[in-house]
Design a protein around this nucleic acid. Structure first.
Length: 767
RNA sequence: GCGCGUGUAACUCAGUGGUUAGAGUACUGUCUUCACAUGGCAGGAGCCGCUGGUUCGAAUCCAGCCACGCGCACCA
């Protein structure tokens, strides 16, 4: 290796070489016996390639890890990937359709899952390799995947634990259903899209009213029949087609207009059935007509009202997004089609009062963007009350701290256990890819048996296993059907086909990734850095999972990094074509320049309107640093920097004792500034102000050191000046290393010093 | 509807009571002098969203308004 610094700086040659040196040296592995410091990486989906948010987050974590490592802490940054249920299943199936023209159903579950595993082997680590190109100092030997065998055991253990507590139960509720992905979704997996639609006002004739006593279904069907004003109650709806599943009309008990109708019945037109008028405080008298049609099977709010009033749940829309048999003549139609037909029919009968334009938010699937459909479905739920309490307490008590603090509000706002929020978590998914629920059954009598009609027992009906080898698990043996819950089912038992929500397993990430020895050393972890959109989806669930299964909060500090938007302030997304691949910058300007550009833009909690010019600035800065180093080296043939603690530099007397008494005003000034920079850099990193720390370093190195001191040094030719030059350079390299690791390590390697360690493990300057 | 955030140079952003408001990028002029032209030096560029208030003094504090973004709720 040449010890000469030859310009200009060319990252391409250097970064890969340096990375290999680090890896070969074993520096990424935890070293020494000092206090530990650990971070688990938010595991990216195996579908993914790096996006700007990943690159930013990786840079943040690497800064922390590298600084702590240089401080001598026994440091672990644990990497890995997430199987990402829906996202991966969709990606692989899309690929399958494109390449082979087959859907997953053509292959069958087993073969399709095999395909996904092949995909995982092929692409699963691609994103981690991109982290390597950014210079991330993860301990790759500890890389984990959320479907590793050991991890799977944790998932089963967690499920069984909750089941035994009676917190996991099977229930039939109206849940969010994605007709495209063909699975249930939790409330957090919805996104909202504004939709311009209409509000249809429909007349429901009142039964028992003097004038409508004579009303019969034929009359209602008869388009010539005119209903008098007082003979009906008008409801407003955005979903006219769901009226087929109405089982009540609800009004607010305080609403004078409808008071006398409470308890009476109305005719449900088209269906020709009587349904009751009920009173419920959840009805907003201000909205529409103040009377609301109740469709428990197709609206989450209506479902709750239905439960309260014991209403029938009539499912008229199926999981395929088509009308069911119960929809009568509309059966088999798609929702939109049925809507048009029904509106047409209502017009004919004369029960459509009016149509108004209306704007509302449509809930869409966060993975495929299709409009979700609330449908009645048998799913598995996890009771949230106690867990939410725990998670809320962890933050309220200050054991888990968000940075910036404002995100705590977001977190607590979702949890609100005193308000019975969040609602119980729907943890089952009708997917093929993921952790299957560890529930097994055996049909003893070999009868025709439909699992979908079977209500699984809850904890009180199910007992600990009698099997002495397997006492942890649960089983039930006294019915025609034997049930087993656990991880070691008896032979010939069939496993429930549903899989767990991918977030159920990622909630265990901070500890399920560690073996017993590592758990003792590195858990709880210190810092978690992630994006704000998964605060509830992931962070909250990790907190209560950690508390539930280990008794500890899984981390202390949670950094919510800014979101990177396009220059126009739009969301970066692949589908919109607004995404930018950070690897492009790594290729073009180098990893250090890319990291510089990213970190430069983290100021406070402001979202970032991505500006490439800061990456260019990073590249220029690399070159500047490169040339500074060359200059200092040519001045110092015998490079013998001394390394005073900056503490000692606080005293003028000490400058002199360390740098000899020939020290000049310029020397003193730069040393003083250097001392302050060491302090502020430490403080800024410790308080997660990465952008500020980097800007200060840039400002000092370029405008104080290079522009002023180096220019001054050209007028001098004495040992003192050379030593100051050497001291400032080496200190800057150390301070800057966590931000721009490759170039600093490369320059460091060229300094002719004795007994030199790699910079990555050299002591970080401290005040 | 409730809440949060933002609005400063052409662009991306710092600055949160006190000289003449800063940086990076872009722009203009100039210099190849021996660390660096991915550079040096010099320079132009801003009713600090609008209106009002507090103050000796406001980009900064307060109120209202406008614009944009985000979260939650509603979404019958």
């Amino acid at each position: 290796m040449s010890n000469k610094i030859e310009g200009p700086y060319n990252p391409k040659e250097i970064e890969e070489k340096i990375y290999k040196i680090w890896e070969d040296s074993g520096s990424f592995k935890p070293q020494g016996t000092n206090e530990t410091y650990s971070i688990v990486i938010p595991p990216p989906n195996i579908t993914g390639s790096l996006h700007m948010g990943h690159a930013l987050n990786a840079s943040v974590q690497d800064i922390l890890i590298r600084k702590k490592r240089m401080e001598g802490r026994k440091t672990l940054w644990l990497p890995g990937t997430d199987h990402a249920g829906i996202a991966t299943q969709n990606a692989v199936e899309k690929n399958l359709i494109k390449k082979e023209g087959k859907t997953r159903h053509d292959l069958g579950r087993e073969k399709f899952v095999e395909k996904i595993w092949e995909w995982k082997e092929k692409y699963g680590n691609e994103i981690l390799n991109q982290f390597k190109k950014l210079g991330c100092s993860c301990d790759w030997s500890r890389s984990r995947f959320t479907m590793d065998k050991e991890y799977q055991k944790w998932v089963q253990k967690a499920f069984l634990h909750y089941y035994k507590k009676g917190w996991i139960y099977q229930g039939e509720k109206t849940i969010n259903w994605c007709p495209k992905c063909q699975t249930s979704l939790s409330d957090l997996e919805l996104e909202y899209k504004e939709e311009k639609t209409k509000l249809w006002f429909i007349k429901y004739p009142i039964s028992g009213n003097s004038k409508s006593k004579t009303l019969n279904s034929k009359q209602i069907q008869n388009s010539k029949f005119k209903i008098q004003n007082s003979d009906y109650i008008i409801v407003a709806t955005t979903r006219p087609e769901t009226m087929l599943g109405d089982t009540a009309v609800a009004v607010n008990p305080k609403d004078e207009r409808y008071k006398k109708l409470i308890g009476k019945e109305v005719f449900l037109p088209i269906v020709n059935k009587k349904i009751p008028v009920i009173a419920d405080r959840g009805v907003d008298s201000q909205f529409g007509t103040g009377a609301m049609k109740v469709t428990p099977a197709h609206d989450l709010h209506d479902f709750e009202i239905g439960e309260k009033h014991n209403l029938e749940k009539k499912q008229v829309i199926g999981p395929d997004g088509r009308m069911t048999k119960l929809a009568g003549k509309y059966a088999g139609m798609k929702i939109k089609e049925a809507r048009e037909k029904i509106v047409e029919d209502m017009k004919k009968i004369g029960i459509l009062e009016k149509i108004e334009p209306y704007k509302h938010n449509l809930s869409v699937c966060y993975r495929c963007g299709a409009a979700t459909e609330p449908i009645l479905s048998k799913q598995w739920f996890l009771k949230m009350k106690e867990l939410a309490k725990k998670a809320a307490k962890a933050v309220k008590s200050g054991k888990v701290v968000f940075h910036p603090k404002k995100w705590e509000k977001n977190y607590l706002n979702w949890l609100k256990p005193e308000k019975d929020e969040p609602k119980d978590w729907c943890i089952s998914r009708q997917l093929w890819w993921g952790h299957q629920l560890p529930i097994f059954y055996c049909d003893k009598k070999q009868k025709e048996f439909s699992i979908s009609n079977f209500q699984f027992p809850n904890k009180s009906q199910i007992k600990n296993s009698k099997n002495k080898n397997d006492p942890e698990n649960l089983e039930i043996r006294n019915s025609d059907l034997e049930i087993y819950v656990g991880d070691n089912p008896p032979e010939n038992y069939i496993q429930v086909s549903d899989v767990l929500d991918t977030w159920f397993s990622s909630a265990l990430w901070p500890f399920a990734t560690m073996n017993e020895k590592d758990l003792k050393e590195f858990y709880p972890t210190n810092t978690l850095s992630t994006a704000r959109d998964i605060i509830n989806l992931w962070v909250a669930r990790m907190v209560f999972s950690g508390l539930e299964f280990t008794g500890h909060e899984p981390f202390k500090d949670v950094i919510i990094h800014p979101t990177i938007l396009t220059k126009e302030g739009k969301r970066m997304s692949k589908s919109l074509g607004t995404g930018i691949d950070p690897m492009k910058y790594v290729e073009q300007y180098g990893a250090d320049a890319t990291r510089f550009g990213l970190i430069w833009q983290i100021m406070g909690s402001q979202d970032i309107h991505w500006a490439e010019e800061h990456v260019i600035a990073g590249k220029k800065f690399c070159n500047k640093l490169w040339n500074i180093a060359r200059f200092v080296l040519t001045q110092n043939e015998n490079f013998q920097p001394i390394f005073p603690a900056t503490r000692d530099l606080a005293q003028r007397d000490n400058f002199q004792s360390i740098f000899n008494d020939k020290i000049s005003n310029e020397d003193e000034k730069i040393l003083e500034q250097m001392k302050k920079l060491v302090q502020s850099t430490n403080q800024n990193i410790e308080s997660f102000k990465f952008g500020q720390a980097l800007r200060d370093l840039y400002e000092f190195i370029w405008h104080e050191f290079a522009d002023k001191y180096i220019e001054y040094s050209k007028t001098k030719d004495d040992e003192e000046t050379k030593r100051v030059l050497a001291y400032i350079l080496t200190t800057c390299l150390k301070l800057l290393h966590p931000f721009m690791p490759h170039i600093t390590e490369e320059i460091w390697s060229k300094l002719p010093m004795k007994d030199k360690k790699l910079l990555i493990v050299t002591k970080y300057p401290q005040d």
